[in-house]
């Protein structure tokens, strides 16, 4: 694998994570339990979609002139490189917020490292995105603590959400030859090297939330290399890509 090929895969991983999570979070628009949460979720989704435009925009440039829209709307499930965690259904508000917290924790640490990337385009996107993600993390941490250390009902739901999502955490720190290539070029850190910082952050917040981290280290994998997505991704794409599939080239 050449460095250019690895770079493209890295950019797709970053952009597909924010695209798929952004779409999932946007599904709450008009459905959240209270108006403030509805607005907050919609704003978070908007930030993630905006970041997607930058990551996939750069990926398209590297990949011979496709647009971010081409990559978002015209690829099929097996072409996506997002981690599996972002494609699982929202389920209840608790699971949505737990997923957001676990992703935000990884995302903020990853972007913090990417600000120092040897590729100045990557560094610029990371600098922009990390300001937004700092707010996402602040909110999702507060909410996880508020609900985890809340009523018996909210506590149980948050513990169930953590138990369900924990097996999806490991994939964010799996490293392969693409990551090795990126680390060698100084473009991106090796994801495995972020784990200690992630664990420290997550353990602190989840302890405040009176939640117990599952002991199992089993990790679902297959999203970030595209080998095996969950069945949920295809269903999500039928919604997200419907307009471009039904009316190719349609624009505002």
């Amino acid at each position: 694998m050449t460095q250019d090929e690895a770079f493209l895969q890295f950019l797709l991983r970053m952009g597909d994570n924010t695209l798929i999570l952004g779409h999932r979070v946007s599904e709450w628009c008009g459905h959240a339990p209270v108006l403030e949460e509805d607005i907050a979720l919609a704003n978070t989704a908007l930030d993630l979609i905006g970041q997607t435009q930058m990551w996939l925009g750069l990926a398209g440039e590297v990949d011979g002139g496709q647009s971010a829209d081409d990559l978002a709307f015209l690829r099929d499930a097996w072409d996506f490189r997002n981690v599996l965690m972002v494609e699982v259904p929202n389920e209840d508000f608790g699971r949505t917020m737990m997923r957001q917290f676990l992703f935000d924790a990884w995302h903020s640490i990853m972007l913090g490292r990417l600000i120092k990337s040897s590729d100045e385009r990557v560094a610029a996107i990371a600098a922009k995105a990390s300001k937004e993600v700092a707010y996402h993390l602040e909110r999702s941490s507060d909410t996880v603590v508020g609900l985890g250390d809340g009523t018996a009902e909210s506590h149980d739901r948050m513990q169930a959400a953590l138990d369900y999502l924990w097996p999806y955490v490991g994939e964010m720190f799996a490293s392969d030859e693409i990551d090795a290539e990126m680390a060698k070029a100084g473009i991106a850190p090796n994801p495995a090297d972020l784990r200690a910082e992630f664990d420290a952050l997550v353990q602190r917040v989840l302890a405040d939330a009176t939640l117990t981290i599952p002991e199992s280290e089993f990790a679902h994998k297959g999203g970030r290399n595209g080998k095996m997505h969950t069945e949920h991704l295809g269903h999500l794409l039928t919604q997200m890509q419907w307009l471009q599939r039904a009316y190719p080239g349609a624009s505002w």
């Binding site: 403030e36 949460e37 607005i39 907050a40 704003n43 978070t44 908007l46 930030d47 937004e132 707010y135 602040e138 909110r139």
Partner: peptide
């Protein structure tokens, strides 16, 4: 503070 997010991305409530 009511919420970190307000009526537009640049504002809090």
């Amino acid at each position: 503070k009511v919420s970190q997010f307000g009526s537009t991305p640049c504002k809090a409530h």
